[in-house]
Each structure stands twice: as C-alpha cells, then as structure tokens.
Design a binder for these strands. Structure first.
Length: 900
DNA sequence: GCGGACTGCTTACCT
DNA sequence: ACAGGTAAGCAGTCCGCG
C-alpha cells in the first residue's frame, strides 16, 4: 500500500540551491523567459478600485483595509465579470459600548492614550433585558484591533482592568460592562450602513447606493396581498424578507481549481504548512468554458495513453515556480474561485510553497487565516465547508450524500465520481494525472452548476438573509446566520445587543426534566404506535410547528420572564415561565414573518406549474434556504454557542409543542378518530372522514391559533411497536421508510438489497387481499438471503461490509472500543492512515476480535451466523407487523428453534 | 471462571 | 457547535453461583 520513490530521481530540490541550478540548466527554455515577461506586462492594478460611477453590481463581500483604515466592499459586476473594490466614504469607525461614563473613562489613561482610541460619544439605546432606555458611552476607535481581537491590550480588556484604579467611581469593578466589542468590524459596518450583502448596488459619484428593481418590487406588492391576517408590523417584515428573495441573482463567473502535490509516501497527504513537496499539477474548470490542466514537466514521466477531452487544454511548465505563477494568474483573474477543501489544503499549500520558492508576498493572491484561506481579489468558496454544514446536508440536499468527500458528494448530488486511481501521484503518466486532477475540478465546478447554479444561488440567498459576506456564509453554521440577522435587527431598532452572560443571569433557568440524561430540558412527545398494517392513513402536521409557536406565543429573550408584574399570569403551559403581553419580541417577529412567508408563499411557488422552470428553480432555492433557517430557529436558543442563548425560550417552545399535540390528541379522541402514531408535530390518523379532518383543522386554528393540515395520505402504513420506525406506501406507490434498520446507511449491501426488494413488493400492494402474494414473495426474499449466507454465496466481500463513520480520532476512544474502532486500529497497523470522520468498512468474523477491515478479510473467516442474526433483526421490524416470523420462513420448526 | 442483568458508549436515525 | 427523543448493538461491570 505504501509506495516510496526517491525524490531527486526527477525533481528539483527547492531547498538545496545547488541542485536547483543543475535542474534549471537542463530544463530552462526560452519559452519560460517569455512567460515571465508577459507576467510583468500584464500585471493588473491592485486593488481594483471602483470607478466614480459603476453600473449594477452585487455586494458579495466586505472586509477591512488596514492600510487605508477603511471598510472595503467587494462589488461583483456581472457584465464584465469583474470585482471592484469600493472604499467606505461615510467615515464609519469601529466602536464598542460601555456603561462607564465619559467622565470616568477620561480618567483612564490607558484608554485615552491608546493608539487606536479616537473619541467618546454618548448614546441612548433600548435595553431589551431590563425593558428600558439606557445611556451608554460609545468608545470610537481608529482601528478594529483597538476594540478587540488582539491577544492583549484591547480596550475591551483594559476597561475592566482600569476601573478599580480610578477614584470616585460609584461602580464596582465587576459591574463595569462592555458591549458589542466582539462583533467583527465589517459586520458592524454592514449593520450600521444598512447595506445589504448579496443585493444589487451601483456607485454614483463615488457613493454606494442600492438599486431598485421594478419587476421585483411589483412581485413584492403582489405577494403582500396574500397575507390578510398579518399586522402592519408583520407585513413590513414579510416585505423585507421577500425583497431579499425576489431580487434577481447574477450569473457567477467562476472557476473551480484543484492541485496535486507529489508525496513520497502515497498514503500520506502532504502537510500544507510545511509544503515540503512540489506542486505538480493544477486543473481548472470554469464557467466561461475554460478547461485547463497546468502540468509540471518532470524527468522520467511518460505522456501515457489516456485520451483527454478535446476541449481540455494541457499546458506544460518547465519549473514549479512558473507553474505556481500560472495558478496565481487564475486566482487574480476570477471573481469566484471554488475549491473542495481549499481552505486547509490547496490554497494554504500554494501560499507556503510559493514562499518556500521565494515568491514575494505581494505576488501571492491568497491571504491565509487560522482556519480559512481567502483571496485578495475575488471570493473563495470552499465547497467542502459548505457541504459539510449539517443543515445544508440534510435540508438543502436531503441527505443525498453522507461522507463529505468529493467523491461521495459528487456521486450523491450530481452523479459524477472521482477517477479511480490506486497509484501514487508520482507514478502517474502526464495524461493519467491530468485526467485524474481535471475530474476533481470538474466535480467541484458542477456541484455549483446543476439546476441553474442552485448552490451559488443558495449561498447568495443566505448571504442576503444573514447579512454576511459570501465567504463567511458559505463556511459558517446556521446559528451564525441567525445570530447575524438578529444583530442587524438590534442595530436597526437602536437596541443594545446584550452580552450572553447577562441573558443567562436574568433568564437562564430551566424547569423541566429531560428524558435523556444530560440534556437541559424536556423535548417533544412521541406517541406510542399501534402495531400492524393500517389502510388509509392520513398524516396531519403543523407546518413549521416551532417557528409558529415562537410567533404565536411571542417568544424571545426579552419577552420570556419579562420584568412586568402584569405579565406574570401569562403562563406557558406545563412550565413556571410567563411571557410578555405588552411588547412584541424581536425574535418572534423575525422568525414568525419568515415562517409565514415560506409556508404561505414560497412553498406553493416552488411547485407552481404555471411558472417557468427557471422561476420554479429559484423558488425552490428560496424555499430551501428558509427551511434550513426555520428548522434551526428554535434549537439555537438552547445552544450555548448561540449569542442570544436563552434556555427558557427553547424550553417554552418545546413545552408548547407538547401542549399543542396533546390537545389535538384529545380532540381526535372526542371525534372518535383512531390515532395510530405521532411524533412532535404530526398525527397519523386511521381512515378519517373528510369532515373529521376538517373539524380537527378548524378546531386547532380556533383553539391553538395555528394551522394544521394533511401532509400526505398513505394507502397503507406498517407499524411495529417501535417509535420512529415505520413504513408507509403513498397513493402513487412510492414508499416512505423511516428509521428502519434496512434504511440505515451502515448496514451491508447484502442485507440492504433484500430489504429494498421487500420494499418493492410492498409498493405493489393496493388492497388487503393483495397482501397474501406480497407475503409469499417477501418470505422468498428472506429465505433466499438466508440460504445464500449459509452457503457463503456472495459475490464480493464488500457486500458484507458494515460501514461506520469513525466519529473521532482513534486515540480519543478511551472508554470503550467499538467494533469499527477495532477495525480502524487494524487498518492503521497495516499502514493506512485513519482519522476522525473517515468511513470504516469492516466485516464480522468468527475469530477474535470478531472484526476485520474488508480489505483484509477472506470468505471463510466470515461469521455467517452473525449476519443471519442481523438479517433477522432487520426484517423483524416489518415481519411481525405482517404476521410473519423469520424463523418459520427459514424453516425452523418450533422444536428446532427451542434447541437452537 | 462464567453467564446474565445491568449501565454506558457509540452511531444513526426522527421531528 | 441548532435542539431533544428513540433504537440498536456492543463493551464493560457487577453479582451470584455451593
């Protein structure tokens, strides 16, 4: 598995100048000199300042320019496909807030003489925690680093340190507070200027102004008429959200790149921080149809005989330095650059490698941070980070991939896989390497190109909703998106953004007991299922239950346990908490309006057949983005990492959820409807009449002020006695499988195949009578698998592999050693590197330790009985509901079973 | 010394 | 770093058993 090859057989040694010279003499050509001269000539002006007048451009990013001490906006002009930098001309400066008076602060020399300090201002803001206006001092600085962000010596640390040293202060040191000092400067800039990232702007006489798009405005006016029951205030919010979604998206001029690095040991990925080995190849796949491979010419490498696509331009470079300069040209050129793991590998490697080769810093188009690698010119989107995002994975791409590798995401999302290659980079011919590397950038590009650039549009919509630069929104999680639009709202309403610990002090306590050990509060209800086969099952649910609750019950950190005595009677059911009756909470408005917009507008639009496909696709994007955010909007309040963390808000939401579903359960009983099952926000009803459904919906609307409707109808559904486990066949014959082992992604294909065959059988059944044939077919399927196992008749060992994700690095498993960890350890011993996040594929064997990685296992050591037991338990979940028994199917008599 | 009852750990799933 | 609830399988521990 491990291959080694002597480096200097064919490579320049960059660290040893002597050998480098030797190499140069052999390979330097006239051609290279020419390239170098052209580089000089073509050097583009940097930064690319926006002209005094610039036509419609998209606000794609914002940063801070340390040299000019100004915020910079990156504008994407789609006609030319260029980025322009617009430098702030409003004079906006970094600041933070404190409850110390100007008088007290002036006595602090370390503040007033701080090199970044500018001046003090007095401002009045609304403090939602105490429900009153407060006067605070704004400490304005010349440099964001003066406020915070340095390891030490920032104003946010100095102030509490200095307070005890000044005399005549009525305040105790621990009461000194600083607010809003941890907000990134460019975010602060975005909120205060009210510029909306992702929206369309123009520069007029040097000023940046948002552009009004007539068509979009018309659509918004139209859409508002739907929301009859909304208050004026709610309508305003709905309009704001709709504007962010209705405005058009540009075509994104972009290039996907991928580099290959020579590694002496092919199983080990080279360390990007050392960049000890040469970059040998880079591929590019761009939206302007450029398809290129930049290849380093090396001694002893054959051209090979792979046929490359005719429109692929393969270009050789004589030295690595030239190759890297060639790659840099691309990075200076494209407004959007896509990579898969470019943050931690490709771009980071290039920076260090270029530095090792003596390329000057200003020539390098990349800025590396601790966790990210950004471009000086354009916007770098690392699709690994984007697809890694759990919310994106589940809600936007409905779990179509699970291993966040280029191969798995490519396969799941666009059906394109990596080129299979079992050799090291150093052993490939030029054409083999080119083909391999090119495919990677092809997948990367196409991940953003299917369905009308869906991924790019999704990032754009999220950029708008969250008011974040595209780089940030594509890398950070949903809680950051939510935090940011809530911060934006605070600034717009002149509200003080509270410190997390102050929310916790005032409203930190929870009162319910979780079912699961170690959790903070009680969650949702799951109704005990009625085992068996049931025909005509209606599934009713609340669309976006938790966001509805947050809206209807006015939940938010300011409204829960509010300071008004009059509100204390307004109790949340099954909790001691009360909620404000006087003022609408900001979260309730923001989340409520977003929910209404999705449920009442975008959900239908995404399916509207009267629209063009292009329009529908756009609404699909919008609908999906809203779904991702709404689904997380309750959970964030229970997440410590969230800036507005407020456990009782999360607890109250879940409690009202339990209350609501319990109420409907009671009503269904009154109406004489049999409830077969229910989970959190859904109810499965056995053969209800139209009138019964209408009554239930109407009653819920009246009593709970929330909508409930029929989500789907099952021709029939199969329940075992297990919660979160069922199978339902829809009218059109498609099958929903929930939670059953046969669906889980870790089980061997050999078993999963049988399960899927059973699924197909069940899909055919239309009436109770047809069950008999299906039962026979299913028995045959099970019997067939059983005999095949007994006779060891499988095609390939990989069919028997369990594939389990290694959740953590190996050494972190100290408490127990699960089977996949045992397999991983044995992989490591055979020289294959294993890390947290890797998928471990193993088979069960008869001898200790009863597991083996598939690669190392042979047919005869397979523990067949274990597999039969697994087959048994997998099918039992469905069989007992059908009145079948696994043992009887495989022909064991009762006596045999007893003896076994 | 061994096996069953139990708890805890880990993963994958549901809403 | 969105939450809690459920299922399943295995690892490890405790305890009884002449």
């Amino acid at each position: 598995m491990t291959q080694t090859k002597s480096l200097d057989a064919w490579l320049p040694q960059p660290k040893k100048s002597e050998e480098k010279e030797k190499y140069k003499v052999e390979t330097q050509t006239h051609h290279n000199e020419q390239i170098r001269k052209e580089h000089k000539k073509e050097q583009r002006p940097f930064p690319p300042k926006a002209p005094g007048n610039l036509s419609q451009s998209y606000f794609v990013s914002a940063t801070y320019d340390g040299r000019q001490k100004k915020a910079v906006v990156k504008l994407y002009e789609p006609k030319e496909g260029k980025i322009y930098f617009w430098y702030d001309n409003t004079g906006h400066k970094p600041y933070c807030l404190t409850n110390l008076s100007q008088f007290e602060l002036e006595k602090m020399e370390r503040v007033t003489t701080h090199e970044g300090f500018d001046h003090f201002e007095q401002v009045e803001l609304f403090d939602a925690l105490s429900d009153r206006k407060v006067t605070v001092t704004k400490i304005v600085a010349n440099d964001p680093l003066a406020i915070g962000g340095k390891p030490q010596g920032s104003l946010r640390e100095i102030i509490p340190e200095e307070l005890p040293k000044i005399s005549d202060t009525p305040m105790a040191a621990e009461d000194a507070k600083v607010w809003e000092a941890k907000i990134k400067y460019y975010q602060s800039y975005i909120y205060d200027t009210r510029y909306l990232p992702g929206m369309i702007f123009e520069v007029k006489n040097g000023n940046l102004a948002q552009v009004c798009i007539e068509d979009a405005e018309k659509a918004i006016t139209n859409l508002k008429s739907i929301f009859q029951g909304a208050t004026t205030e709610e309508l305003e919010y709905i309009e704001e959200w709709a504007r962010l979604i209705e405005y058009p998206a540009p075509k994104f001029r972009r290039a996907a790149i991928d580099i290959e690095v020579y590694a002496p040991i092919s199983s080990r990925v080279p360390d990007p921080r050392e960049a000890a080995y040469p970059v040998v190849c880079c591929s590019l796949y761009a939206s302007d149809n450029k398809k290129r491979v930049l290849m380093l010419r090396r001694q002893g490498v054959k051209v090979g005989n792979k046929t490359l696509p005719t429109d692929l331009e393969l270009q050789y470079y004589e030295t690595e330095e030239d190759l890297i300069r060639g790659i840099f040209e691309i990075l200076w050129e494209y407004p959007f650059v896509l990579t898969f793991n470019g943050d931690d590998f490709d771009l980071r490697y290039l920076v260090h490698r270029a530095t090792n080769l003596g390329i000057e810093k200003r020539e390098i188009p990349i800025e590396i941070g601790r966790r990210v690698s950004l471009l000086k010119y354009g916007v770098h989107i690392d699709l690994y980070k984007f697809f890694f995002n759990r919310a994106i994975q589940i809600y936007a791409f409905s779990n179509r991939y699970r291993d966040v590798t280029l191969n798995d995401v490519g396969k799941g999302v666009i059906g394109l896989e990596k080129i299979v290659c079992d050799k090291g980079i150093g052993d490939l011919s030029y054409t083999e390497l080119a083909e391999y590397c090119f495919r990677d950038s092809e997948i990367t590009f196409k991940l953003t190109n299917f369905e009308d650039e869906l991924s790019m549009k999704l990032i754009l919509v999220l950029t708008r909703i969250s008011s974040m630069p595209m780089e940030d929104v594509s890398r950070q999680g949903v809680s950051r998106w939510i935090r940011n639009f809530m911060h934006r709202e605070h600034r717009h309403k002149k509200m003080l953004i509270p410190n997390s610990q102050d929310i916790l002090i005032h409203k930190g306590q929870t009162a319910t007991k979780a079912v699961i050990k170690g959790k903070k509060y009680q969650g949702a209800i799951v109704v005990e299922p009625v085992p068996g086969v049931h025909f005509n099952v209606a599934v009713m649910d609340f669309p976006s239950l938790y966001p509805s609750i947050i809206k209807v019950w006015n939940l938010g950190y300011q409204s829960i346990l509010c300071p008004h005595a009059e509100c204390k009677g307004n109790i949340i059911p099954n909790t001691p908490h009360w909620v404000c009756t006087k003022k609408r909470a900001m979260e309730s408005l923001l989340i409520g309006s977003l929910r209404d917009l999705r449920v009442q507008w975008y959900k239908n639009k995404a399916k509207d057949k009267t629209l063009t496909e292009e329009q529908r696709n756009w609404y699909k994007v919008a609908q999906g983005a809203l779904k991702v955010i709404l689904n997380a909007s309750y959970g964030v309040f229970g997440a410590e990492s969230f800036d507005l963390y407020c456990p009782p808000v999360a607890e109250a939401t879940a409690a009202i959820g339990r209350f609501s579903i319990t109420k409907i359960l009671e009503r269904a009983k009154t109406l004489g409807i049999q409830v077969l099952y229910g989970d959190t926000d859904s109810l499965f009803l056995k053969n209800p009449s139209k009138a019964q459904i209408e009554d239930l919906a109407h009653w819920t609307e009246q009593e709970l002020k929330m909508g409930i409707d029929v989500d789907k109808m099952y021709r029939y559904a199969v329940f075992s006695s297990r919660k979160k486990n069922y199978l339902g066949v829809l009218e059109d014959g498609s099958v929903d499988v929930k939670g059953l082992t046969g669906k889980k992604k870790h089980i061997p294909i050999f078993i999963k195949d049988a399960f899927n065959q059973m699924k197909d059988c069940l899909a055919q059944v239309k009436t109770p009578a047809e069950f008999e044939k299906a039962k026979k077919d299913i028995a045959n399927i099970v019997r067939d698998r059983y005999t095949k196992l007994k006779r060891r008749e499988w095609e390939d060992m990989s069919e028997l592999a369990f594939s389990v994700v290694l959740g953590d690095d190996l050494e972190r498993y100290t408490k127990t050693t699960p089977q996949h960890v045992k397999a991983a350890k044995s992989l490591q011993q055979s020289g294959i590197e294993v890390r947290g996040g890797d998928l471990i594929r193993f088979v069960k064997t008869t001898r200790e330790p009863h597991v083996k990685p598939v690669e190392l296992a042979t047919k005869n050591e397979v523990d067949v009985d274990k597999y039969i037991a697994y087959l048994h338990s997998t099918f039992d979940q469905v069989l007992d509901a059908l009145g079948l028994s696994f043992d009887e199917i495989i022909g064991l008599t009762k006596l045999e079973r007893f003896l076994a």
